[in-house]
Simulated scan of single mutants.
Amino acid sequence: MIEIKNLSHSFYVGKKGKEREIPVLNGISLEISQGEIASIFGKSGSGKSTLLNLISGFMKPGSGRILINGEDVTSFSEKQWAAFRLQNFGFIFQNFQLIPSLSTFDNVALPLVLEGVHASQRKLRVQEILQRVGLLEQANHFPNELSGGQQQRVSIARALILNPQIILADEPTGSLDSETEKEILNLIRELNRQQGITFFIITHDEEVAEISDKRFYLHDGALVNGGVSIEV
């Protein structure tokens, strides 16, 4: 489902014509199959976030290729990427990225609004998803009225609302206490097993990595052991 071939990327700092190259990723190659939970595990600064941004099209790689469902997305335009993300990806963020002025219901419904889904259909779909993540009773609550775990469940519900094949998660439990972390990880496992959703998670937390079918260890921009995944 996700295939990365010899992906490299650098940042450049300094004045134009005198830029200094800072390599961030070096020759990354990996494969993730449909229905797997895969994690990129590594310390801060290892290149995890850059890799996620490249896979999701928010950055263009310096070299290498990215294929999603066999389609080479490496040279997509911003317009192509915007449509592709909406159709294929859901996103879960460490800091939830909820809109403070919108209720739980409206935060989850936002992607449906952008897709032009009729209000009556939106209501049914959002209620279904909120029931799924255990937040139907909090539908009219605003983010500041929810716990951290509840806010992350709202984020997960929003990620699920368009039935994505792949969910990209950036430190999904990084802002949560250990007990709430377990609840969110159990929910991710449940969604993966029952709905076959592919999860691609970046994390520095070993407990998060342990729920994965595949773990890839990233160190200083390169995969440890030549990119061989560790089956768990």
Rank of each mutant, 00 (worst) to 15 (best):
G134A: 07
L162I: 13
L135F: 03
L160P: 01
E183Y: 08
E179M: 10
R193D: 02
I166A: 08
N192M: 05
R153N: 04
Q194W: 01
I156C: 01
S175N: 15
L135S: 01
I184M: 03
H141C: 15
Q138A: 15
S147Y: 08
E181Q: 15
V133L: 03
E183P: 07
E137G: 09
F142L: 12
S155Q: 07
Q151I: 05
E145A: 11
I188T: 03
R158L: 11
T180N: 04
L135E: 00
E183D: 14
L185W: 03
E181M: 13
I156L: 00
K182Y: 14
A139P: 02
L185K: 01
R153F: 06
A159R: 08
T173R: 15
R153E: 02
L187N: 01
G174R: 06
I197A: 01
I166F: 09
G149C: 09
L168D: 04
L162A: 10
L135A: 00
F142P: 00
G149L: 09
N186Y: 04
R189E: 08
G174N: 07
E179G: 03
P143C: 08
Q150L: 08
H141V: 09
H141D: 11
S178Q: 11
E181W: 03
L168H: 05
S178H: 10
N186H: 09
N163A: 14
R132F: 06
L135M: 03
V154I: 11
N192W: 00
A159D: 06
V154N: 00
Q138P: 04
E171P: 10
R132I: 04
G148I: 12
L187K: 01
L162M: 15
G134F: 07
Q131V: 14
L130F: 04
D170R: 13
P172I: 07
E137R: 10
L130C: 05
R193I: 01
I188S: 01
A169H: 05
E181K: 15
E179N: 11
Q194P: 02
G148W: 13
Q195E: 14
I161L: 12
I129Q: 00
I184R: 01
Q151A: 06
I156H: 02
S178M: 06
R153P: 01
I129F: 03
S175V: 13
L176A: 07
Q131F: 13
E181H: 06
I188M: 06
S147V: 09
N163K: 13
T180F: 04
F142D: 02
E145H: 08
I129H: 03
E183M: 12
Q165L: 07
T180V: 15
Q138F: 08
V154R: 00
A139S: 12
L136G: 07
P172S: 11
R158K: 14
L136R: 09
E137Y: 11
I167V: 14
Q151D: 07
N144I: 12
D170C: 14
G134N: 05
R158W: 10
L176Y: 05
G196E: 12
T180C: 05
E137C: 11
L130I: 06
L146V: 13
Q150S: 09
L187T: 02
E137N: 12
A169N: 05
I166L: 13
R158Q: 08
R193N: 03
Q152F: 10
L135Y: 02
G148K: 12
I188D: 03
Q194L: 11
Q152M: 09
L168G: 02
R158E: 08
E137H: 15
S147A: 04
T180K: 04
A157S: 11
E183R: 11
I167M: 07
E137K: 12
L160N: 00
N163G: 11
